[in-house]
């Protein structure tokens, strides 16, 4: 069944674990991808096969830029996961704790009952296949095929006064069942989903203005490590399109080597893309300082240049 991304309530939490921005919920991942062009990178692998890195799954790691864009636009907020767990479990009340333990016990008991029931059914099946009658079949009034046999059996057994044993043994087996110990694999619950209390803004590199510009134009981005740039930029979903640009972001007055431009342009041309350099446009050199403080409200225009080999 396909997860339904419409169930996601905004703003959704992004977990920050050891400086990484992670999403653990498939619905949220789909929602971010569909609605906000945020792809991220799947980093989850099989614990006992950690060498395999072809089919990676959840969690989804977001680039700091992606997390920042989502937070700035009010779609998400950052949760410091270690802090949230520490606070959450220390300040958990006794009632909450007990009710959670009780709930886990009930869950474990259900699991045990299910296991026992399945084991009995299986042994019955085997006995029946061998032409013998299973002990469990007597306990099962719904098995239509053995109804007549049961009746004659009971008639026999009543002679030996064994009929009252059955319910007693059933009760005894229910009583002596030990609950399976369930290892909890989620933190929410038991913790309540933390709210956006801290307003953390992810720290972003200086290429962020270019990222934000490309994102605002509807482009999808993936990390550009494979092409020696900051972002490889796709005109649509990365599963449907080839990328158009290899983008490198820099400051307006940052000096760059022409050799880098030529190298980037040459590589991009080789893989049928264009090399893109860009940055936040700044007026005079004195007036830049204010722009950084409230980056959300005061967005300077971004200027970018596409570079392709001329073929001369």
């Amino acid at each position: 069944m396909a997860p339904d991304s419409t169930l996601v309530s905004e703003p959704f939490p992004i977990s920050r674990v050891a400086g990484r921005y992670l999403l653990f919920d498939v619905d949220v991942m789909m929602h971010a991808r569909r609605a906000y062009n945020i792809c991220g990178v799947h980093i989850g692998t099989v614990p006992n096969l950690s060498q395999q890195n072809v089919f990676l799954g959840i969690p989804l790691e977001l680039q700091p830029e992606e997390a920042r864009v989502l937070v700035e636009q009010g779609h998400a907020y950052i949760v410091d996961d270690a802090e949230a767990h520490r606070n959450g479990f220390i300040h958990m009340s006794r009632e909450e704790r007990l009710s959670y333990v009780k709930a886990m016990d009930e869950q474990g008991l259900e699991l045990t009952k299910e296991t026992v029931k399945r084991a009995e059914e299986r042994s019955d099946q085997v006995l029946r296949n061998k032409g013998l009658k299973g002990k469990g079949a007597k306990n099962d009034p719904s098995s239509a095929s053995t109804v007549s046999d049961d009746k004659s059996d009971r008639a026999d057994e009543t002679l030996f006064d064994s009929a009252p044993v059955e319910p007693a043994s059933a009760r005894a087996s229910a009583k002596k069942l030990d609950p399976t110990y369930v290892t909890p694999t989620t933190s929410y619950p038991p913790l309540k989903s933390p709210g956006d209390a801290e307003h953390i803004l992810p720290n972003v590199p200086k290429s962020y203005p270019l990222f934000r510009y490309l994102h605002s134009r509807g482009y999808f981005t993936m990390p550009g490590l494979r092409f020696g740039c900051h972002y490889s930029v796709y005109p649509g979903d990365t599963l449907r399109f080839h990328s158009h640009y290899l983008a490198t972001g820099m400051d307006w007055d940052e000096e760059f080597e022409l050799l880098d431009v030529i190298g980037g342009g040459r590589l991009a041309n080789r893989v049928k893309k264009a090399y893109l350099i860009g940055g936040e446009e700044k007026g005079t050199e004195q007036a830049d300082d204010d722009g950084q403080v409230d980056g959300v409200t005061n967005i300077a225009p971004v200027r970018a240049f596409s570079i392709e080999w001329a073929g001369l």
Binding site: L214, R217, P235, H244, Y245, V261, I262, G265, A268, N269, K272, K273, A274, L276, R303, A304, F305, S306, I307, E308, W309, A310, G311, L312
Partner: peptide, 12 residues
Amino acid sequence: VYYIMQDGLVKP
């Protein structure tokens, strides 16, 4: 060497 530079996002 000659490279073409364009103003803005121009698809390759």
